[in-house]
Design a protein around this nucleic acid. Structure first.
Length: 439
RNA sequence: GGCCCCAUCGUCUAUCGGCUAGGACACGAGCUUUUCAUGCUUGGUAGAGGAGUUCGACUCUCCUUGGGGCUGCCA
């Protein structure tokens, strides 16, 4: 155990940005690595956006990614009294004062300002960015209480960090300038100054900050798109950190053991959806067969799932062996497997044109039917041997391609003979004759 | 404008003064003698520019250029 306490402090807006969740991941890993505590603080002071639904979305996101937190959730709105007490204290010692100001939208009122020192240097050693220094004169006094009496981010954030006894603040790069201000508040309040680690931003393909306009910018979208939480977690971690060797796909245990904040990069990282997709495939390949079977059953519509559930263990083993390495996204399962579970499967017109709508194909299919009927041992090797013999060593293409399209309606999928074995003799022959008639 | 930060293949990165600059994704070629994948083999592409320090600089220093952040009664 250690005394380390870190927090993830998002404001719930109904969606969780990937840059934000990366900060959560780094906080979580840092806490788990050091044996410290990882706390969740909901900065819900924006009453319009901070709805119970938005907070629920945040919780679901955390749970989906496996970001479990210690202690009770801390709600910023519940600490307003303490924020204002701190403001009174600052006023009492002359570090805060009231002034009439006009806001951008033209409203005039009395706000409370924090008084920055007018000389000297404010500095801190950022765990990822290194030594940071700024002349106090370059930072102006800033507002900490609105004219309506509500505390502003700067004071609320610092007081909450004091109350939660946060030792390390790991957050986005965009807070660097705030840190110089916040350090002065900590000092004025006589509180210990936490250590800081500022994380670079995630940028889009154009090198600009990743926003919602760049497509999937929120965690929920990845979930819906069929990404595995482990893959997104691993990918986000690698965007700015590496274990020091060439390993990229890491278990949670390895991540926790190897993670070091000091090794996190200072430079902004570009988000590469292609590499994420690759990583997703890597994690899909790692799914245990029994779990993968459940994923298939969940992906299928109920009637099809019922049929699938009735299949034998051997049948499932073959199917999974064939399908799992070919799957990039679990949500594709339903479409890529339909023809196994219903006669009402879509037929790709392009596949028909390319493989079936040709002279001689009908004859080939009709010729195959009795040959298939004669096969007693309906297994992939036997079926393959039969077609191989037909081709007489001249390549099985003329048989293989039409059969595939005839029985599945598509040009891609499992190995053909495995596919036939999985479909079964009866179905194969029925579909063959039906297709032969329609060609 | 001012202040702060950053800079290795297209992208994510390794390199803590010795580099024929390594890996991964993506891309190209090939093999696995049926598709699509998987797997394996293989190819090309990088140190923004300029000074300085040094026997030696991708690595250290400075300047230039380029990029980003902040500059709110947002967080």
């Amino acid at each position: 155990m250690s005394d380390i306490r870190v927090r993830f402090a998002p404001s719930p807006t109904g969606k969780v940005h990937i840059g934000n969740i990366r900060a959560a991941i780094y906080n979580w890993l840092f806490a788990r690595h050091t044996g410290g505590k990882f706390l969740l603080r909901v900065e819900d002071t924006d009453l319009e956006r901070s709805t119970p639904e938005a907070i629920q979305v945040l919780f679901e996101c955390m749970e989906w990614l496996g970001l479990d937190y210690d202690e009770e959730v801390f709600y910023q709105t519940k600490n307003v009294k303490r924020h204002l007490e701190a403001v009174e204290e600052l006023k009492r010692i002359g570090r805060a004062y009231e002034v009439e100001k006009t806001s951008r939208d033209g409203k005039t009122g009395i706000v409370t300002m924090f008084r920055m020192p007018k000389e000297g240097t404010i500095e801190f050693d950022d765990i990822v960015k290194g030594h940071m220094a700024k002349k106090a004169e370059d930072i102006q006094d800033f507002a900490i209480v609105r004219s309506d009496g509500s505390p502003i981010f700067h004071i609320a954030n610092v007081v909450d960090d004091i109350d939660q006894r946060i030792t390390h603040i790991i957050r986005g790069d965009d807070h660097v300038e705030n840190t110089f201000k916040h350090i002065e508040i900590f000092k004025a309040l006589g509180a210990p100054i936490p250590k800081y680690g500022h994380l670079s931003m995630i940028v889009n393909q154009q090198g600009k900050p990743y926003s919602k306009r760049d497509g999937a910018a929120f965690v929920g979208e990845y979930r819906e798109a069929g990404y595995l939480p482990e893959a997104l977690f691993n990918y986000l971690l690698l965007l700015g950190w590496n274990p020091g060797d060439d390993r990229e796909v890491l278990t949670k245990e390895e991540m926790i053991r190897l993670f070091e904040l000091e090794k996190v990069h200072v430079t902004a990282a570009m988000f590469d959806p292609k590499k994420l997709a690759w990583m997703n495939g890597e994690y899909i390949k790692q799914i245990p067969p029994a779990v993968f079977q459940d994923e298939i059953l969940r992906a299928l519509p109920p009637e099809q799932a019922a049929i699938a559930a009735a299949k034998s263990e051997a049948w499932w083993n073959l199917l999974i062996a064939q399908i799992q390495p070919r799957t990039k996204f679990l949500k594709d399962l339903a479409t890529s497997l339909v023809y196994f579970f219903t006669e009402d499967y879509p037929i790709d017109p392009k596949a028909v044109e390319k493989r079936l709508a040709k002279p001689g194909v009908k004859e080939i299919l009709l010729d195959l039917i009795p040959r298939f009927e004669a096969i007693a041992d309906w297994t992939a090797p036997v079926l393959e041997a039969m077609v191989k013999e037909l081709s007489q060593g001249n390549g099985m293409g003329p048989w293989v391609h039409p059969i595939r399209v005839a029985v599945s309606g598509r040009t891609e999928g499992p190995g053909l003979f495995e596919m036939l074995e999985l479909l079964g003799k009866e179905t194969t022959i029925a579909r063959l004759s039906k297709t032969a008639q329609n060609v």
